[in-house]
């Protein structure tokens, strides 16, 4: 690997994966929005509801 020299040692407790948390929160928001869109607009808004 080319960046071998830049390596720093960080331990599990000291390392806060802020970027990961940000990405995963973004994923959470996308999931929530898409779910609402799919369930309430695509599904419940679709023709013919099975009612019995």
């Amino acid at each position: 690997m080319s960046t071998e020299t830049a390596k720093k040692e960080i331990d599990h407790e000291d390392f806060d994966p802020k970027g990961t948390l940000a990405l995963i929160l973004l994923y959470f928001v996308i999931l929530a929005i898409l779910w609402i869109f799919m369930y309430f607009i695509e599904f419940l808004g679709n023709d013919l509801t099975v009612i019995g």
Binding site: A6, K7, K8, E9, A22, I24
Partner: peptide, 19 residues
């Protein structure tokens, strides 16, 4: 993803998404 971020930061990556 956290394991990847750890690697990226050891390789000198910075920032919230810059890593």
């Amino acid at each position: 993803v956290a394991s990847m971020e750890y690697g990226a930061r050891r390789r000198g990556g910075t920032g919230l998404f810059g890593w």
